[in-house]
Simulated scan of single mutants.
Amino acid sequence: MGAAGQDQSTLFRGDDAELRLKDAKSVRGTPARTMPAFILGEELADLADHDPRIVVATADLANSSRTRDFANRHPDRFIDFGIAERNMITAAAGMASCGLVPYVATFASFAGILAAEAIKTDCAYPRMPVRVIGHHSGISMGFYGTSHHSTEDLGMMRPIADLTVVCAADANQLRAILRASVDHPGAMYIRLGRGRDAEVYSTVPDDFAFGRATQLRDGRDLTIIATGSQVHASLAAADRLAEQGRSVRVLDMHTIKPLDEQAIRAAARETKAILTVEEHNVIGGLGSAVAEVLVSEERKPFRRHGILDEFSLIGPPAALYAHYKLDADGVTDVANGLLKEIN
C-alpha cells in the first residue's frame, strides 16, 4: 500500500485515471495508464481470454513487467522460471512446438543479450512462434549499471535470420504490436522502454503492420527516423524545429526487421537529410540498418544519433537521456547541427 492507502497494483495498472507518478524530473508526471511495460500483462490477459494458446512466462520479474496482471487472471497459463532466462526461452520454444503461443518477458539486457543464442537456435531457426519481450531496454535501468543497460540488443537480434524485431513507442502501440503478433509467423523480439514512456499514439493504431513505418509528420528539410522511446523525443524536436522555420518529417520505424526500405528511400528522395535516433549503440541498431539501405541510393547527408560506441554511464534515467542528447532538447540540437552542415 502507498502512503495514502493506494494499492500499489493500481499504480502499476493505472486503474485510477487521475493517478500520476511523483518523480517529476524522471517521469514528468506521465499518467500511469500510458506506461508500456505496465499494460503488458493486462493486454496479454485480454488476448488470452479469447485464445487458449497464449501462455506467459517471466524470469523473476512478474512485477517489473506487470505480467503479474496476467498471472492473476490466468494462473494456469503463467510460469515464473526464476532467474533462468535462457532456460525460460528454450522451454518456450518447446511450448510453441506443441501449438502454444508463448510470450516470455525479462529485462532486455537478459533477453536480447544474455539469451541471444537461445533465441537464435531454439526459436528463430525452427521458426517457433515465441515472442521474447525485452523490457527496460537501453539506458532505462539507470543506476543498475552496465550489466542491466541494453544498448547492444538490436545489434544482436538484427542478424538472426527469420526473427522479427520490433520496438514499442508507447502503451497504445504496444497493444497494437501484441494484437498483431498472436498469429504472426516465426519468432519475434519485442523491445520495450522503461514503462514510463510518454504518449505518442492517443489511441491504439488500427493500421499497425510489421515492416511498415508510420509517418507521424511530413517535411522537406530533414527526415528523423526514430524507434521506441525516441519517437516522442523526435516529435517534440520536430515541433521545436518547426518554430524555427524548419520542415521536418518524422518516421516511427517501429519494426527494425523487416525494415521498411521503401519509406527510407522515399525520405532520401524527398528530404534534404536523414537523422536516425535510437536509445541504442549507434553501431548495429536502427542507424546501421538505415545506412545499409542508403548506401545503395543517391548520397544524402546522414547522421546516426544514439549512444556512441561506449558503455553508457550510470545515473538516473532523466540525467542519462539529457547527457546523451536523447531528450527533446538533445535531438533538437543534433538535428540543428546536421541542418547547419548541409546549408
Rank of each mutant, 00 (worst) to 15 (best):
L222W: 14
T223I: 03
T223S: 15
I224D: 03
I224K: 07
I225H: 13
A226L: 11
A226R: 05
A226E: 14
T227E: 10
G228P: 11
S229A: 15
S229Q: 15
Q230N: 13
V231H: 12
V231K: 09
H232R: 12
A233R: 05
S234R: 11
S234V: 05
L235S: 05
L235Q: 12
A236P: 01
A237L: 08
A238S: 14
A238D: 13
D239R: 15
D239Y: 06
D239S: 13
R240G: 00
L241G: 01
L241T: 03
A242G: 09
A242T: 07
E243R: 09
E243I: 10
Q244C: 01
G245T: 00
G245Y: 00
S247D: 03
V248L: 12
V248D: 05
V248H: 04
R249L: 10
R249S: 12
R249N: 08
L251F: 01
D252M: 01
M253N: 09
M253I: 03
T255Q: 05
I256H: 07
I256C: 06
K257W: 07
K257Y: 04
P258I: 06
P258S: 04
P258N: 09
P258L: 12
L259I: 10
L259N: 03
D260A: 07
Q262E: 14
Q262C: 10
Q262F: 01
R265N: 02
A266L: 12
A267G: 05
A268C: 14
A268T: 07
R269D: 13
T271Y: 03
A273Y: 04
A273T: 06
A273F: 11
A273P: 01
I274A: 08
L275P: 01
E278D: 11
E279W: 04
E279N: 15
E279Y: 09
H280K: 09
H280W: 10
N281W: 05
V282D: 04
I283Y: 14
G284E: 07
G284N: 06
G284K: 09
G284L: 09
G285P: 06
L286W: 00
L286Q: 08
G287T: 09
S288Q: 14
S288I: 03
S288N: 07
A291P: 05
A291K: 11
A291S: 14
E292V: 07
E292N: 13
V293M: 07
V293H: 01
L294V: 03
V295Q: 13
V295C: 13
S296V: 01
S296K: 06
E298R: 10
E298Y: 05
R299T: 09
K300P: 00
K300Q: 04
F302T: 02
F302C: 06
R304S: 10
R304H: 08
H305N: 00
I307T: 13
I307F: 06
I307P: 04
D309H: 07
D309S: 15
D309V: 13
E310H: 01
L313R: 14
L313K: 07
I314P: 04
G315N: 08
G315F: 02
G315P: 10
A318H: 15
A318S: 14
A318E: 14
A319Q: 13
L320N: 08
Y321M: 13
A322M: 06
A322C: 04
A322H: 11
H323P: 00
K325S: 10
K325P: 00
L326P: 04
L326C: 01
L326R: 06
A328M: 01
